[in-house]
């Protein structure tokens, strides 16, 4: 059996000062007032979550890890990527923690730090954003083909029936719609990319 000290330093043992403020760093980077520091670890979020079974840590556990400064473990967690944004946890949380928005923050932090373990979810978001940045509107067919070809080519044949149905019923456009003032939107987004949320 490993001596107790080893276990300690492997987990939430001595931390660098910047890790001790990890919780506040996340709270700061979240839109709105997140109330993250108010978590009482009651588990309402983990209990409410429809996809908790597929998460490596429940949201509650993730918040405890943020408090413990476990940066690496948090950013590698699949939890934020499994979050379906159903907001059940948000409205039930007795401490009004904006859990879903914290998940968005953790996703963008993981992308920046390149810590996520499965590249599918961030690439899907990135592909979607790419369409929006090009056309100003989403383009379902373009998104589907580009994303599936890169990530799930094997899923395509099985999906063909559905895709064909969507196309023949004209529920998927063959060409993208584009907004008129694309220049304006591009200028806004380019400027926005240079800005960061601080208090």
């Amino acid at each position: 059996m490993a001596p107790a000290e080893t276990v300690l330093t492997q987990g939430a043992g001595l931390k660098k000062p910047e890790d001790l403020t990890l919780l506040h760093e996340v709270a700061e980077a979240t839109a709105g007032v997140s109330h993250l520091e108010m978590c009482i670890q009651c588990g309402t979020c983990g209990g409410s979550c429809p996809s908790a079974a597929d998460m490596d840590h429940t949201p509650r556990a993730l918040f405890a890890m943020l408090r413990a400064g476990m940066r690496e473990e948090v950013l590698r967690s699949n939890t934020p990527w499994i979050c379906v944004s159903c907001y059940h946890c948000v409205v039930r949380c007795p401490q009004e923690v904006h859990i879903a928005d914290v998940m968005y923050t953790l996703k963008s932090m993981a992308i920046k730090a390149k810590k996520y373990t499965d590249s599918k979810p961030p690439d899907f978001s990135q592909t979607f954003v790419g369409m929006v940045e090009t056309f100003g509107r989403s383009f379902e067919l373009g998104l589907a083909t580009r994303f599936y070809l890169t990530h799930q080519p094997l899923r395509l044949p099985g999906m063909a029936g559905m895709g064909l149905g969507m196309l023949t019923k004209k529920r998927m456009n063959l060409t993208p719609n584009r907004i008129k003032n694309m220049d304006q939107l591009t200028a806004i987004l380019e400027k926005a990319k240079t800005l960061e949320l601080t208090s």
Binding site: A31, S108, I111, P122, V129, A192, L197
Partner: peptide, 25 residues
């Protein structure tokens, strides 16, 4: 007139200020 995509649940995962700017337009 000339509305754009709201970003669905995707843009917020990538970058906060652009995501909110997209909606706010």
């Amino acid at each position: 007139e000339d509305w754009n995509c709201c970003g669905a649940t995707e843009y917020l995962s990538i970058n906060l200020i652009p995501a909110y700017s997209l909606i706010a337009r």
